[in-house]
Design a protein around this nucleic acid. Sequence first.
RNA 1: GUGGGUAUAGUUCAGUUGGUUAGAACGCCAGAUUGUGGCUCUGGAGGUCGUCGGUUCAAAUCCGACUAUCCACCCCA
Length: 431
Amino acid sequence: MGKQTIQSIRGMEDVLPDEAVYFQFLEAAARRVFGRAQYREIRTPLLEPTELFARSAGDSSDIVVSKQMYTFVDPGERSNTLRPEGTAGVIRALIEHGVFKESAQQKLYYTGPMFRYEKPQKGRLRQFNQIGIEVFGVAHAAADAEIIVLCVEFLREVGFRDVCVKLNNLGDREDRQAYNNRLREVLAGGASDGWCPQCVERARLNPMRVFDCKEQRCRALVAGLPAVGDFIGEPARAHFATLRSLLEACEVPYEIAPDLVRGLDYYSRTVFEIVQGGLGAQNAVVGGGRYDYLVEELGGPPTPGVGMSIGVERLILAMKALDLRPPGEPPPAAMVLALDDAAMPSAFRLASAARVSGAPVALDLQPRSPKAGLKAANRLGVRVAVIIGADEAARGVAQWKDLSEGTQTEVRVEEALERLKALSDPSVTCR
RNA sequence: GUGGGUAUAGUUCAGUUGGUUAGAACGCCAGAUUGUGGCUCUGGAGGUCGUCGGUUCAAAUCCGACUAUCCACCCCA
């Protein structure tokens, strides 16, 4: 590696072909699972006005979050930000196009790269991909349940077993505010009560975060704090009960996780997460929840919403940890080899004609010795090699070699073309 | 943002207490019947040892800085 080579930006990974099949596999599965539940794809820009994310993040996490955004001023002197998540852009698009006026109910999914300026580590990149789904306009807990059920279906579809959802109820906005205020009071003692410096800071910014402090003495102190449950009003309580009964109705395994707290304060009522072992510290593969106030916050009509997003790279790590592999593309049935320049036109024409009729056919793009060519054919895993040299080209024939049986016969090129077409599996080409 | 580990061939890694031309496996290319693959054997290409600087007669090896990467913390929309 010379010193003048250019390398990718920190935290931004290339996805080489061997890796890309994982992405293709997961995206295809998402389209299947979400598509059959009547969710439709939405694609929004990677770049949005900074204002959008500043508003969606809310004020308490504003300072923290803005440091982790890729924000820049464009030549027109507007502040733009690479999207750090998918939901805000989706909501902006729906408001902008008046979609909520046609119908408040929307079921959508999206996939694509997100950007966060964080220090990279395992399962945490600066550019990473998410697959997400959102339901708008449904206050009923069936929406929460469907989102969660679809997550579980998706994970099972791609090969995961033993999926368990961690679930919590944060209550409505007023409940949460009351609880946060109470927590701040209780935590006011700060360091003198024995809290670690980080928890003292959390008490100020996002008190509920003290619940996942890892300090021994904080964990002990946390046990004595008032429980969020005591502050949750009857409507949110009933909502959560309905959700649980729906999950139980379709036997979705879940556990209540009282310490599951989301960082941003637009969540209300339901929050959930699915974690996977073997991923190190960044083990949350799926996260989501209800955000009944966010659409209004972004200037739209009051519209409830629920959503979740899947961290694609993390999911791929989890697949590898469990030795789950995407089904590979089947190798082409045949490879056409030209032994010299004189044979290339004939070989080239034969391969093209076969491909046009739907047969997956490999072509060695430079003349090579039969030995090298067959080696390449073997490596690709094809069953048949069609060999054409100057002699064959002149006579309008080709050598049809079956690599598994080792037999070889001379056929006319027209016959070779028919055989190549026949080799292609009709179940693959016709749907 | 904080703390720690690592950086040698395309890949995964060896490399003794600093000491000649830096190795292996896999992969790649070629030869072993001048137009025939897989297995085997033989050979070849490919590294200014992450970058820059320092210590030393001598640095892949010791020291420093920088960069990247990994692990954990912080945070996690």
